[in-house]
Lab assay of single mutants.
Amino acid sequence: MEVRTIKVFTTVDNINLHTQVVDMSMTYGQQFGPTYLDGADVTKIKPHNSHEGKTFYVLPNDDTLRVEAFEYYHTTDPSFLGRYMSALNHTKKWKYPQVNGLTSIKWADNNCYLATALLTLQQIELKFNPPALQDAYYRARAGEAANFCALILAYCNKTVGELGDVRETMSYLFQHANLDSCKRVLNVVCKTCGQQQTTLKGVEAVMYMGTLSYEQFKKGVQIPCTCGKQATKYLVQQESPFVMMSAPPAQYELKHGTFTCASEYTGNYQCGHYKHITSKETLYCIDGALLTKSSEYKGPITDVFYKENSYTTTIK
């Protein structure tokens, strides 16, 4: 009895394709271990004539594949690729409408935090270190965002349907971005203890939790000093293409032309909904596939993004 075979390709990165001759009487799992086709788990399936010449994702289970996976995804987590594939199996079914010149995501599976993050990423200057993220990001900007969303979920250790947080998501993504040249110098002034300067680099240099107003941050924000008295913390120097200011959701007025974009969060910790506000020729609110415009805006804002380049204080 002759062994019926077909020729397929296996890959971990969709760049390096490895030619395989597979036995049609055995499952993919018996031949390769966990195997995925377009995100779908085909591990328990036997090869079919229609699979001839198709590319299958496999887990990096030998040295060659491990090197290829690390170079593309910059992670050695053995569960990463499987999590990416199972997320992709959902995100490829989502709709990605162009809204006001940006790629958004039609609401499904509690994905409003991903839509808000995706919209924000198209408006701030950011370059990702893992080629996987950078490639998928370019495709997302062009309207094909399924891979990018699935990668975000995998890097953030999230599953489809789980509630997510924009600030946490951005923080994970910033860790995989090139923020080497970003720098922030802060000064804390206390009447009792004097003053202390701190220099922050990388992710810490672009994120701040405690106030939404970048102007206020430049002037000074009140913080408790270690001595128990009130101290003032203010920005001395900022070198970065953008800054992200966050605070627990509270009524906040966004003035046209003073910011790049913002995240609105309605609801409580267990259950809520994100919308995205962007400042173009007027203010726009993007909620999944829905767009509304207004000249002014007041609502429960939790993150505001500002364009920056270089700032030095005039406070002496």
Rank of each mutant, 00 (worst) to 15 (best):
Phe259Leu: 01
Leu283Gly: 02
Glu296Val: 13
Leu121Ile: 07
Ser295Val: 14
Leu291Ser: 15
Ser310Leu: 15
Gly82Cys: 13
Thr211Cys: 14
Leu200Asp: 06
Asn187Thr: 10
Glu204Leu: 05
Val58Ala: 06
Ile124Gln: 07
Gly257Ala: 04
His273Ala: 00
Asp165Ile: 03
Pro130Leu: 03
Thr282Met: 11
Leu283His: 02
Gly210Leu: 05
Asp41Trp: 02
Thr292Tyr: 07
Tyr269Trp: 13
Phe217Gln: 01
Lys275Pro: 00
Asn100Glu: 15
Pro60Thr: 06
Leu163Pro: 11
Lys307Ala: 13
Tyr172Trp: 05
Leu235Asn: 00
Gln238Arg: 03
Lys229Ile: 06
Pro78Gly: 00
Leu212Val: 08
Asp38His: 13
Leu118His: 02
Gly39Asp: 10
Val166Met: 11
His273Trp: 08
Pro241Val: 00
Arg141Gln: 10
Phe80Thr: 01
Phe242Gly: 00
Lys293Gly: 06
Glu308Met: 10
Ser294Asp: 02
Pro131Asn: 02
Ala247Thr: 03
Thr76Pro: 10
Ser240Phe: 02
Gln251Trp: 10
Leu102Phe: 03
Asp13Trp: 06
Gly220Asn: 00
Met245Thr: 00
Val304Gly: 04
Thr260Phe: 01
Gln175Glu: 11
Tyr252His: 09
Val99Tyr: 07
Leu290His: 15
Ala142Gly: 13
Leu119His: 13
Gln122Ile: 11
Thr19Met: 11
Gln237Ala: 12
Tyr138Ser: 15
Pro241Thr: 06
Val236His: 04
Leu102Gly: 08
Gln222His: 08
Phe128Thr: 02
Ser171Glu: 10
Cys271Arg: 14
Met24His: 08
Arg4Gln: 14
Gly228Ser: 03
Met24Cys: 14
Cys227Phe: 01
Asp23Phe: 11
Ala289Val: 07
Val12Thr: 08
Gly202Trp: 08
Trp107Lys: 07
Gly267Ile: 04
Gln197Ser: 12
Ala145Val: 03
His273Gln: 05
Gly143Met: 05
Thr302Met: 00
Gln123Lys: 03
Cys225Leu: 02
Gly161Asn: 08
Ala250Val: 14
Thr313Met: 15
Asp13Glu: 00
Ser171Asp: 09
Thr199Asp: 00
Lys307Ile: 06
Pro131Gly: 11
Asp180Leu: 00
Tyr36Gly: 04
Val188Pro: 01
Gln197Glu: 13
Met209Trp: 15
His176Tyr: 14
Lys44His: 07
Arg184Tyr: 04
His90Lys: 12
Cys190His: 06
Pro78Ser: 13
Ala115Met: 10
Phe242Ser: 03
Lys93Pro: 10
Arg66Cys: 14
Ala136Gly: 07
Ala140Asn: 02
Cys261Glu: 07
Glu144Asp: 14
Pro47Ala: 10
Asp13Phe: 03
Ile124Thr: 08
Lys233Trp: 05
Ile45Thr: 10
Pro47Leu: 05
Glu215Leu: 06
His256Asn: 07
Arg4Met: 11
Leu151Tyr: 06
Arg141Tyr: 09
Ser246Ile: 05
Pro249Ile: 00
Val8His: 05
Lys280Phe: 10
Tyr297Trp: 09
Asn110Leu: 13
Ser310Gly: 03
Lys298Trp: 11
Lys219Glu: 11
Gln251Asp: 14
His90Val: 12
Ile223Gly: 14
Leu283Ile: 15
Leu65Gln: 14
Glu168Met: 07
Ala40Met: 13
Met85Leu: 11
Pro224His: 13
Leu151Gly: 01
Tyr234Asn: 02
Gln216Ile: 03
Thr292Ile: 05
Ala145Ser: 04
Asn49Thr: 12
Tyr172Gly: 13
His256Trp: 14
Phe242Arg: 05
Leu17Tyr: 07
Glu52Val: 12
Gln222Pro: 13
Thr226Lys: 15
Lys106Pro: 08
Leu235Ile: 09
Thr5Met: 11
Thr55Ala: 09
Thr313Ser: 15
Ser263Glu: 09
Thr27Cys: 13
Phe9Asn: 11
Cys227Val: 01
Met170Lys: 03
Pro241Ser: 10
Pro224Gln: 15
Tyr297Thr: 06
Thr292Phe: 13
Asp13Ile: 08
Gln31Asp: 14
Ala250His: 12
Ala154Arg: 01
Leu118Ile: 10
Phe217His: 00
Cys227Ala: 03
Thr120Ala: 12
Gly101Ser: 03
Tyr274Thr: 05
Ser104Ile: 02
Leu153Asn: 00
Ala205Ser: 07
Pro47Glu: 02
Ser25Arg: 11
Pro78Ile: 10
Val99Trp: 11
Ala250Arg: 14
Leu17His: 11
Gln134Thr: 10
Leu121His: 04
Arg4Ile: 13
Cys227Ser: 02
Glu296Phe: 15
Gly101Pro: 03
Asp62Arg: 08
Tyr274Gln: 05
Trp107Tyr: 07
Tyr234Gln: 08
Ile105Gln: 08
Glu168Trp: 03
Val304Asn: 00
Arg66Asn: 14
Ile124Ala: 07
Ser295Lys: 14
Asp77Arg: 05
Ser310His: 15
Thr313Cys: 14
Gly33Ser: 04
Asp303Arg: 02
Thr169His: 00
Gly33Asn: 01
Thr278Phe: 07
Gly257Thr: 05
Gly202Gln: 05
Cys149Arg: 05
Ile223Leu: 04
Phe217Ala: 05
Pro130Ala: 12
Ser171Trp: 15
Ala40Val: 13
Asp109Ile: 05
Glu68Asp: 07
Ala231Val: 05
Gly272Asp: 08
Phe174Glu: 07
Leu186Lys: 08
Lys201Asp: 04
Cys261Trp: 03
Arg139Ile: 06
Thr5Cys: 14
Ser181Glu: 13
Lys255Ala: 04
Ile124Asn: 04
Gln216His: 12
Ile223Pro: 00
Phe70His: 07
Phe148Pro: 04
Gly228Phe: 07
Met209Ser: 08
Ile315Lys: 15
Tyr208His: 06
Pro224Trp: 10
Val8Asn: 10
Lys127Glu: 14
Lys218Gly: 01
Gln31His: 11
Tyr28Ser: 11
Val243Asp: 02
His273Thr: 07
Leu173Pro: 06
Ser240Leu: 02
Thr116Arg: 00
Pro97Tyr: 05
His276Tyr: 07
Thr192Ser: 14
His51Val: 03
Gly39Val: 05
Pro241Tyr: 10
Ala136Gln: 07
Glu168Leu: 09
Leu173Asp: 00
His48Ser: 13
Asn268Ala: 12
Thr314Lys: 14
Leu119Arg: 01
Ile124Val: 02
Cys271Lys: 13
Lys255Gln: 10
Pro130Arg: 07
Gln230Asp: 08
Asn178Gln: 13
Asp77Phe: 06
Gln175Trp: 03
His90Asn: 08
Gln98Glu: 09
Thr64Pro: 09
Asp165Trp: 01
Gln230Val: 14
Ala115Gln: 01
Gly194Ser: 04
Tyr311Phe: 12
Pro130Ile: 02
Thr302Cys: 01
Tyr138Phe: 13
Tyr73Asp: 05
Phe259Glu: 00
Tyr214Ala: 06
Tyr72Leu: 11
Val304Lys: 00
Val42Gly: 00
Leu37His: 14
Thr292Gly: 04
Thr11Arg: 03
Ile6Asn: 08
Asn14Phe: 12
Thr43Met: 11
Glu52Met: 11
Thr278Met: 14
His90Met: 11
Lys229Cys: 09
His74Thr: 04
Tyr214Pro: 06
Met170Trp: 02
Thr43Arg: 13
Thr313Tyr: 15
Ser25Lys: 07
Thr211Tyr: 08
Lys127Phe: 09
Gln216Ser: 10
Ser25Trp: 01
Gln31Trp: 13
Thr76Ala: 15
Thr258Ala: 09
Lys316Ala: 15
Glu308Ser: 07
Tyr234Ala: 03
Tyr155Phe: 08
Tyr57Gly: 08
Leu37Gln: 13
Lys229Met: 10
Cys156Ile: 10
Phe32Ala: 09
Gln98Ile: 15
Met209Phe: 15
Met85Thr: 09
Glu71Met: 09
Gln134Phe: 07
Gly39Asn: 10
Ala177Thr: 04
Leu17Met: 12
Leu254Ala: 07
Thr116Lys: 08
Tyr265Thr: 00
Tyr73Arg: 07
Thr159Arg: 14
Phe242Gln: 00
Phe32Glu: 05
Thr211Ser: 07
Glu2Thr: 12
Phe242Tyr: 07
Gly272Met: 00
Gln222Leu: 12
Leu119Ala: 12
Asn129Val: 05
Ala154Tyr: 07
Val67Glu: 13
Ile45Ala: 12
Gly101His: 02
Lys307Gly: 01
Lys298Tyr: 11
Thr103Tyr: 08
Thr266Ala: 01
Asn89Cys: 09
Asn157Met: 06
Thr19Gly: 12
Ile286Tyr: 06
Gly272Val: 01
Thr35Gln: 04
Leu151Glu: 07
Asp180Tyr: 10
Leu290Val: 13
Arg66His: 11
